[in-house]
């Protein structure tokens, strides 16, 4: 079983701090959602696991060993990210053969079955495929390598909605999933949240959140009820979003629901619901300096 561990990892490029004090553990059998705003450091974090870069300080291990320039460990990791195939004359079929030659664990039949779902013509050159089809090839190859660590960085970019749905289904049903770490770095939180077992949020190069989805969703909630009751209930709470429709108001509140809050809600006849992951993510990573903390929408 292969684990990936970051211990006090820093990455500086020239004098700029890109990642700071990163402590994370990735375990087999789980799908991780890696979230973060543009430039937060998601891709850089993944590129460290794939040894595209060397950590500046701290310890990064894959299967207990430093992966950097480690010929036994590097093949255990697959990093799929957006590629420019505009001049790539290699056919899809040749890509499969190439993967098989370099990765003995590559399952060609599985790759063919995954590609078949996207109706990809294997005889076509990569540059002849649409961006969505190229992304589908990448996604399929990533799953079919059977590597214990698969890192998908915005891999669905360019795919249309049906293709994205297919990919999500393929991830959930991935072969040998119980022994593999799958990391999905994405901006499309609303579509993928149901896939995640754990959520990691990177913000300004630091780990803001690293916890199971259930726990993460407890970081905020939504209450609905009479507008004046909502105002009374939420006056000392951090309301991140509120909507009013006639006498009814819905407020999204950041913070865990205490027993006291729950009884108060019952007394006031307010309805509780879970906050959407995307809303939580947006609100937690919003830089609020000089901005209003509450967005009122009428």
């Amino acid at each position: 079983m292969v684990n990936v561990e970051f211990r006090d990892v820093d990455l500086r490029i020239r004098k700029e701090v890109i990642l700071q004090d990163v402590n994370l553990t990735f375990e087999p059998g789980k799908i991780y959602g890696l979230l973060g705003r543009n430039g937060a450091g998601k891709t850089t974090l993944l590129s460290l696991i794939a040894t595209y870069r060397k950590v500046t300080s701290g310890t990064l291990t894959v299967a207990g060993e430093n992966p950097y320039e480690n010929e036994d460990i590097m093949p255990l990791v697959d990093f799929l990210h957006q590629e420019d195939y505009s001049e790539e004359s290699t056919t899809v079929e040749d890509y499969l053969k190439l993967s098989k030659r370099y990765k003995s664990s590559f399952d060609t039949d599985y790759a063919l079955s995954l590609l078949d779902e996207y109706n990809i013509n294997l005889k076509k050159q990569m540059m002849e495929l649409s961006r969505g089809q190229q992304a589908a090839v990448d996604a399929s190859l990533g799953l079919a390598t059977m590597s214990p660590v698969v890192l998908f960085d915005e891999v669905t970019n360019g795919m249309d909605a049906p293709s994205r749905e297919k990919f999500y289904s393929q991830v959930l049903n991935a072969k040998n999933r119980e022994n593999r770490i799958i990391v999905l770095s994405t901006h499309i939180v609303s579509e993928m949240d149901y896939l995640f077992d754990e959520v990691i949020i990177i913000h300004h190069g630091k780990v803001l959140v690293d916890e199971p989805v259930d726990e993460f969703l407890e970081r905020g909630y939504q209450v609905t009820g009479n507008a004046s009751d909502i105002d009374a209930y939420s006056k000392d709470k951090r309301v991140v979003k509120a909507r009013t429709l006639g006498p009814t108001k819905a407020a999204a509140i950041l913070g865990r629901l205490s027993d006291e809050d729950a009884s108060l809600m019952e007394e006031m006849n307010l309805t509780y619901s879970v906050m959407r992951m995307q809303d939580l993510f947006i609100n937690m990573t919003e830089d609020r300096s000089g901005k209003e903390h509450t967005h009122e929408q009428q």
Partner: peptide, 9 residues
Amino acid sequence: IGLGVTRKQ
């Protein structure tokens, strides 16, 4: 590197 080849290799 994407194919798991080290820099040395």
